[in-house]
Write a protein that binds this DNA or RNA. Structure first.
Lengths: 246, 246
DNA sequence: TAGTGGTCTAGACCACTAC
DNA sequence: TAGTGGTCTAGACCACTAA
């Protein structure tokens, strides 16, 4: 069952991406939208808040909402899951496990996964391909409580996210991502088919369930020119932060 | 004048960063918060929505809000302005203009700045330093209507953002950022004091006013190890997107 | 000055969680 | 089953924009 505010948001989203509401144009007033959709103004504002957070529209007190961007934004699922993201874009995802070993969490890993130092973890290296070409090398550390479920997956499992949801009901709900650039090491170069020292986009991330329980932390390295990360931000919604490196 | 919902959000934010509400703990119920602050539940929900968007807390229907992260997030101003970001972190920002020339917008620039192809633009190269060390090379293209104001700034102007606000009332309200990694070119290497071919974090961004009018577009390259970008996202708020490169 | 978005209230009902 | 968050309503007043 979809909620009224989600329906209204979807109608407006479609009007923007379809070009009925071109870049820079003004939306109908909140009162008008409430009348045409037969809801109260509060519900309309809930729908507009979603588009505001996506960076599609901007607002100023006293003036109507305006269209800031016409590019659709992606769902969290598409972002979190390489396979689902690839398929959503019409590409063919692939991948295989290079290595999977159990070990003891070091200090940093334990802190990120909220475990005791030395607790058992599962380390997995995965190579991801897009339309057959290697684009991403993942070095993932899973918390011990999920290790068995991960080990049970086939080596060429396309979507780990989807598999863990289906088999164990584990939902990836929140993520924190740190982006910077590094030079390709020996293993990076071999697997991604680039020269040693080539620039790679590194994304270090930690994912937790809806309850806030950390599931995995990962060091992902993208081949240059393969993938671009996009963030929209504003005075009204500010997801992106910049921090000095250690 | 600060709003009631902003005050409540600030109280909760402080309780989280101070450790009174530790990682994983539950917040008071919305009804309790409404009673203790003497406001309606709607106002409390407005405050919680802000923390939700910042990734500090998570929520599930039927369960209380929980603390997901204790790291403070930054304001848009700190993100947008290199100087203000540096000072907020206790660092000393610096910088100088390497070059500033007027020219005609090429096709890509015109599209990003919503100008007619061939319209006049101002191109500025700026080197930014943090505590004396070069960390960032900016190649910025300003729309013609703001060019004169930018040219009037001193070459060692610390905060262009602040200067344009003070002198012309131009507010940088929205931004779109694309992040990837590139190899340092000859000019990059010379100014940032790295070897040619070294990995650099590249951020291509376009900034607009609150009215949605593009002000500038820029290609920023960060020295490796100097700065890290952080994004928090979730099923409830998803600012980050990943797109295949062209 | 008329219209618009921002804020806030005081209710109501439902879906879901935790016990 | 009691409590909680998610949704929605129908008002009200204020700050701001645009003509």
């Amino acid at each position: 069952m979809t909620r009224r505010h989600q329906q209204i948001a979807e109608v407006l989203r479609r009007a923007i991406t379809d070009g009925h509401l071109p870049l820079g144009s003004a939306l109908p007033s909140e009162t008008e939208l409430a009348a045409t959709h037969g809801v109260s103004r509060g519900t309309v504002r809930q729908a507009l808040a979603a588009l505001l957070a996506e960076g599609l529209i901007g607002s100023r007190q006293g003036a109507r909402h305006i269209v800031l961007s016409t590019a659709p934004s992606q769902s969290f699922t598409a972002l979190r899951s390489f396979a689902q993201w690839a398929r959503a874009g019409g590409h063919s995802p692939g991948g295989r496990v290079l290595e999977a070993v159990r070990g003891a969490a070091d200090g940093g890993e334990a802190a990120l996964l909220q475990l005791a130092p030395g607790a058992e973890v599962l380390r997995v290296w995965r190579l991801r391909t897009l339309d057959g070409a290697p684009v991403l090398l993942e070095r993932t550390v899973y918390a011990g409580w999920i290790a068995e479920a991960v080990e049970a997956l086939p080596a060429d499992c396309e979507s780990v996210t989807q598999a863990l949801l289906d088999s164990h009901g584990v939902v990836f709900a929140h993520g924190e991502h740190h982006l910077d650039a590094v030079a390709a090491g020996t293993a990076d170069a071999r697997e991604l088919r680039v020269r040693r020292g080539s620039p790679l986009l590194r994304v270090r991330r930690t994912t937790t369930t809806a309850e806030g329980r950390p599931v995995e932390t990962s060091d992902d390295r993208y081949r240059p020119g393969a993938v671009v990360f996009t963030v929209r931000n504003s005075t009204q919604a500010n997801p992106l932060a910049r921090t000095p490196a250690d």
